Amino acid sequence: MTQQVRGVISRAKGAPVEVTTIVVPDPGPGEAVVKVQACGVCHTDLHYREGGINDDFPFLLGHEAAGVVEAVGPGVENVAPGDYVVLNWRAVCGDCRACLRGQPWYCFNTHNATQKMTLEDGTELSPALGIGAFIEKTLVAAGQCTKVDPAAEPAVAGLLGCGVMAGIGAAINTGGVTRGHSVAVWGAGGVGDGAIAGAYLAGARRIIAIDVDPRKLEWARGFGATHTINARETDDVVKAVQDLTDGFGVDVAIEAVGRPETYKQAFYARDLAGTVVLVGVPTPDMTLELPLIDVFGRGGALKSSWYGDCLPSRDFPMLIDLYLQGRLPLDKFVTETIPLDGVEAAFEKMHHGDVLRSVVTF
């Protein structure tokens, strides 16, 4: 039997989002219905509204969510009704070439629910990142549900579903940050601060946050940044990073902005044989030009980080445990909690850099 619930949709490119009635089907084979308790407002949701992802309107927005499994379909064994879960947008298949070679975090065949949630007139919705969680109840693939300790508040736990995990994973999983490393992070938003928190957790001795907003740089210190650079007030960011690292540059440079000019800074601000990690999402029109001799001569590694190269079943419970132990300040990412009809206003605050994360709570 279908259910009718309230959710936030984007009908057309650039149009304000709206709260409307959504029809959620019963879960089919391999699917689950989750009662959403909290969902973060991520910049990716704004990208969907602006048509920056694709044009499959109308979109059901929201994807950084935590909640309780209400019902599961046939064949579901990983979760059961009553389980407290964080939703993820990379439900691994277990059968593709990446999974079969023991690297499921690179799964090339991640999946979503087969059925579609719809408007009352039957119009099918495109759920953001295959989740769609600005809604009272959502339909997802059961593999998108990761059980975690219910002691963690939903507004905090749900943030692992996207941006915070992308940042932490970019540092630890992709960048391989470990004890004694020096790290620089371009962009001190949700993903960048996640990378800073991850580097701090891994034992980096020097963590440099780079941004143009003094407020964000101050927030970055709360996640473990030992030094900050205001790029708007600095003539040469690369030299500023080198000056803070005995003239050598950092071991790991993490670009969380997604722009060619900041990527170039990260490339040249790393030490010889250092690692550059791109976790900021560029737009399709952006291009990058680097002298090939510099790519060769500096050595090291140039990496892209997909979702922090995380394995949700491994990483989500571990990070929640670290949060509950007081070792990972996930609660500092939550700037405000808002009602379901506050998403459009939250986008405006995000655009002006007034929040780290607004979180819809139910």
Rank of each mutant, 00 (worst) to 15 (best):
N109Q: 15
N109G: 06
G158D: 00
P104R: 11
P104E: 10
V86W: 11
F108K: 12
A113S: 12
G161S: 05
M117N: 09
P150L: 10
A157R: 10
R97E: 15
F57C: 15
K116P: 04
G82Q: 03
L129D: 12
V76P: 08
L119G: 01
H111K: 08
A128F: 07
A171G: 01
V156F: 00
G180N: 00
G73H: 09
E70G: 15
P127F: 05
H181W: 10
T138H: 02
G143L: 13
T138L: 05
T138F: 08
K147M: 09
Q115M: 09
C93G: 02
L60S: 11
R101Q: 14
V72S: 03
N173S: 07
V185K: 01
R179M: 15
C99G: 13
A65K: 02
W105A: 15
L159E: 08
K116V: 11
D56F: 14
Y106V: 12
G75E: 08
I172P: 03
N88G: 12
A142G: 06
C96I: 12
G143H: 11
C93L: 04
V177H: 06
E136F: 01
N78R: 14
R179G: 07
F57A: 15
G180V: 04
A170K: 03
A71N: 10
M117V: 15
L61T: 07
T118H: 09
A65Q: 02
A141E: 05
G176H: 00
V164Q: 02
A155S: 09
G102S: 07
A151P: 08
C107D: 05
E70Y: 09
F108L: 13
N112R: 11
V164Y: 03
G175W: 14
V177R: 12
G143T: 08
A171W: 02
I53A: 04
G176D: 02
C162N: 04
A80I: 13
P127N: 03
L125Y: 11
T146V: 15
G158T: 04
V156P: 00
N173V: 15
A66M: 09
E70I: 12
P154A: 03
C107Y: 04
H111T: 11
A80V: 15
V164T: 01
G158M: 00
E70V: 10
G82V: 04
E153G: 10
F59D: 02
V79A: 08
I53T: 06
V140Q: 09
V156M: 01
P127H: 05
Y106D: 14
G167K: 05
G163N: 06
P81I: 05
A65E: 01
A152G: 04
G161Y: 06
D95Y: 14
V68M: 13
C99F: 13
N88Q: 07
G75H: 12
G132T: 05
E120V: 14
M165V: 07
G52A: 09
G132K: 05
Q144V: 08
L139N: 08
G52N: 04
E77K: 10
V177P: 11
V86N: 11
A155M: 07
V177L: 11
S126Q: 13
G175V: 04
K147A: 05
T174F: 08
I135C: 14
L61Q: 02
C145V: 04
G62F: 02
G163A: 13
L61V: 02
E136S: 11
A65I: 02
M165E: 14
F108E: 14
M165P: 07
D149L: 13
A113N: 04
E64R: 04
T110G: 13
V76I: 05
D83S: 01
T174E: 05
A113I: 06
